[in-house]
Design a protein around this nucleic acid. Structure first.
Lengths: 296, 296
DNA sequence: CTGTTAGCGCGTTCAC
DNA sequence: GTGAACGCGCTAACAG
């Protein structure tokens, strides 16, 4: 121990890892790192992994020519002791590997036996619709997420079943395609503005789209919520600071990362490649972007 | 090669890395991973590191009890071939190590010989002030970043020198303390509302603060820009979608990450631990949050 | 140009 | 309880 202090010896982790057959770091596979939506999730991951002695390796599948190959590379190279997947667009075949590396799905993904952390997306969408209906809205529009995304699907289903349960019809020209981003919210707004018969409320499947939508109609001189009500999904930090403050479905993003990390560490420690999936509840945050249409 | 295909052999990177004395990954030291400001920077980093064959390791100094020790750990463990530091609050002593691992500073940091990538912060602040003055504003308030931060300092200096060059005085009660976050923008707004003699314009050292400020005064029934003009700094994605769209200083965040990555790779390839620093220019984005006070 | 060998720095085991 | 030796899987250097 004196020699350690004198020579300034530090253990070589490459050698230790080689010997112990582990890397001490876990990989997060993110569909688009530039999307600020992931920053809090990654912070949650890091907050659990770091005290547990794991490093956080991040790969952006968006910029990668072949995400599936990339995943296979990490699974077999021994560079990661576990993987958290946030990208719902990876082919199923990429997940059916027998590498022995634990995987946790942190995006909504139904048809895989892998453990997952997900948010009650369908229920959140239903809550939003029921809130609008309770406020007297019957003409409700909807902006979707990107096609093929599992979040898009489950939120759409939740919205749809709530609508039909309430006896409300969803018109095709009141459905706006989207990709969860700000810009497509703005273009949905332009389509809304061009409509002869406009819905009195639009439920956007993400806060960013809701924000883009609100901004664009406001730039056109339309008042929110007097002329159109808007509900978002996510409760990103900026939502409460918009004018009007955005009514939305709160999704605890830090928690998603933390839970995923805990499940993964549990799998690594026990050596079993399965675990209980978790569903994180959502919550309606009532603010000022929805008009009360009920007569007094 | 046939045997490779038959047995499904994949090279073990731990063993390779041990032998080659490199890890194949780069560490990014981020002050607060939850801050969406970094997402685009990290995406830029990833976009050049990934094709170059490097993995991206991320450590959040915010959640770490001892960031300096953490840095030392990574520098000496051999787990990273290079480090990009975004945290300007690390003690100088932590950087003066002779580990042989290249370091690039990607936050503004003046008194270190390490190569850095920085943005023309002082100039950006000066541009904002000159724009407000050109629009006829003479009573200008300012919201700062967190104390001790190098960005805070250089933006403050740029603002101050532009003010005095224009013969404008900066009143103490028109300076609002901040931390670059949304919430403190809102509290600055409450202080502005309580002022007997209010500035006609407020320049916020970050877009998030500007957004929080605008939202809060608008919630109080104040019109932007009719009753108060606001200028931000950063040009975050949401700024153009606010109502009114926020006039701000554009800072290319993806580029910061890309440049830092390029410099670092150059240092690794050549083996020299020094490199030219780079300054990235900024640009005024004129939108609708500044009123024209000049008489027609 | 192909085949063999030494050793990267550690953790584990086996002998004392 | 302390110490020596082996091997994790690869790459680089060297011999044939």
């Amino acid at each position: 121990m004196e020699a350690v202090a004198q020579t300034g010896y530090r253990i070589n982790h490459m050698a230790r890892n080689l010997r112990r057959q582990r890397s001490g770091s876990i990989l997060a596979l993110v569909p688009n790192l530039a999307n600020p939506f992931f920053s809090q999730i990654l912070a949650g991951l890091s907050a659990v992994l770091s005290p547990a002695g794991y490093g956080l390796l991040i790969a952006d599948t968006h910029t990668d020519p072949n995400p599936a190959e990339r995943l296979a590379y990490y699974l077999h190279s021994g560079l990661a002791d576990g993987v958290v997947i946030f990208d719902g667009t990876l082919p199923k075949s990429a997940l059916q590997t027998r590498s022995g590396v634990p995987i946790v799905m942190a995006c909504e993904w139904t048809d895989t036996p892998l453990p997952s952390v997900r948010v009650a997306n369908a229920e959140g969408a239903a809550i939003a619709i029921r809130h609008l209906a309770a406020m007297g809205h019957r003409k409700i529009g909807y902006q979707t997420g990107p096609r093929g995304n599992v979040l898009t699907l489950s939120r759409f289903e939740g919205m749809q079943s709530a609508m039909s349960a309430l006896g409300l019809q969803l018109r095709d020209d009141w459905i706006f395609d989207g990709d969860f981003g700000l810009a497509c919210g703005a273009s949905a707004a332009r389509r809304w503005l061009a409509l002869a018969d406009r819905p009195t409320a639009v439920f956007c499947a993400s806060d960013e789209m809701a924000c883009g939508f609100m901004g664009e109609v406001q730039h056109a001189g339309i008042s929110v919520p007097d002329e159109v009500s808007v509900v978002g999904f996510d409760n990103i930090e900026v939502s409460r600071h918009l004018a009007p403050a955005l009514t939305t479905i709160h999704q605890p993003r830090g928690l998603i990362g933390e839970r995923a990390a805990r499940i993964l560490i549990g799998m690594i420690d026990t050596g079993v490649l399965t675990a209980e999936s978790e569903v994180i509840p959502v919550e309606l945050i009532r603010r000022n972007s929805v008009a009360d249409l009920r007569m007094a």
